[in-house]
Every structure is written in structure tokens, then in C-alpha cells.
Computed example of a mutant assay.
Amino acid sequence: MTHGIEAYVSTLHNSFTDPLAMQSIRQVVENIEKSAVLVRNNGEWRYITACSASS
């Protein structure tokens, strides 16, 4: 989400990057709840997610 917002509000944004940034924000919004439920209900997935976040 952060990278999508940063790309959209950047002073270097353009007509090519704006739709990509908006799509990335849209995808996060559409999937964040499903992702949170998966992490909460699945211990292995929680472990994998935690490891990838700390890398």
C-alpha cells in the first residue's frame, strides 16, 4: 500500500505510473481482509508471513 501511495503522489508520477499505482492500492484494499483472516486462522501461514516481513 505504501509504495502505491508513494508512486501516486510522487513529484515524478506520470500517465504511465498513475494507473499502476492505483491498481496496486486497489488490490491491497480488495485483499487485506482476506489476508488478515488467513493469517489469523492458519498458524503456518502466520509464520511464513512473519518471516517474509522480517527479511
Rank of each mutant, 00 (worst) to 15 (best):
Y47G: 01
I32K: 10
V37P: 01
H3C: 09
P19D: 04
Q23M: 11
T11E: 12
P19T: 04
E6M: 14
G4C: 01
M22C: 07
S54Y: 12
F16R: 06
V9S: 02
T11F: 09
L20Q: 06
F16I: 11
V9Y: 04
L38V: 04
R26N: 08
L20D: 02
V37M: 12
Y47S: 11
Q23G: 05
I32S: 06
R26Y: 15
S10H: 03
Q27W: 00
S15A: 13
A50F: 13
N41P: 00
A53H: 05
T17W: 06
R46C: 12
A36I: 13
Q27C: 07
A21L: 02
S52Y: 12
F16N: 05
S55L: 12
D18R: 12
E6F: 14
A7L: 15
M22E: 03
L20P: 03
D18T: 08
A21H: 02
E44Q: 14
V28C: 04
N31K: 11
S10Y: 03
Y47N: 10
V39W: 04
E30Q: 09
G43D: 09
S15Y: 03
M1T: 08
N41V: 04
T49K: 13
S35F: 15
S55I: 08
P19K: 07
N41M: 11
N41R: 09
L20W: 03
A7C: 10
V28R: 02
D18A: 13
Q27R: 09
P19L: 10
F16L: 11
A53S: 08
R40E: 08
W45C: 10
H3F: 13
N42M: 02
V37C: 08
S54W: 11
S10W: 03
S55C: 11
N42T: 07
I5P: 03
S55Q: 08
N14V: 04
K34G: 10
L20Y: 02
Y8E: 05
L38T: 08
M1G: 14
T49G: 03
I48C: 00
A21K: 04
I32G: 01
V29Y: 07
G4R: 01
E30N: 12
H3G: 07
C51Y: 14
T17H: 05
N42W: 02
R40T: 06
E33K: 12
E33Y: 15
V28E: 02
I32Q: 10
V37K: 14
S54T: 11
A7F: 05
G4I: 01
R46P: 00
L38A: 11
S52P: 00
S52L: 15
W45R: 06
T49D: 09
R26V: 06
N31F: 08
D18K: 14
N14I: 03
E33C: 05
A21S: 08
P19W: 10
T11Q: 06
A21W: 01
P19Q: 05
N41Q: 15
Y8Q: 00
I5R: 00
K34C: 05
S15M: 08
E6N: 15
Q27M: 10
Q23I: 07
S52G: 01
M1D: 09
G43R: 15
N31L: 06
T11V: 09
N31D: 14
G43H: 13
N42H: 07
H13I: 05
S35A: 11
C51I: 10
E6S: 14
A21F: 04
I25M: 00
P19M: 09
S55K: 12
T2W: 15
E6V: 10
S24F: 07
L12V: 07
L20I: 07
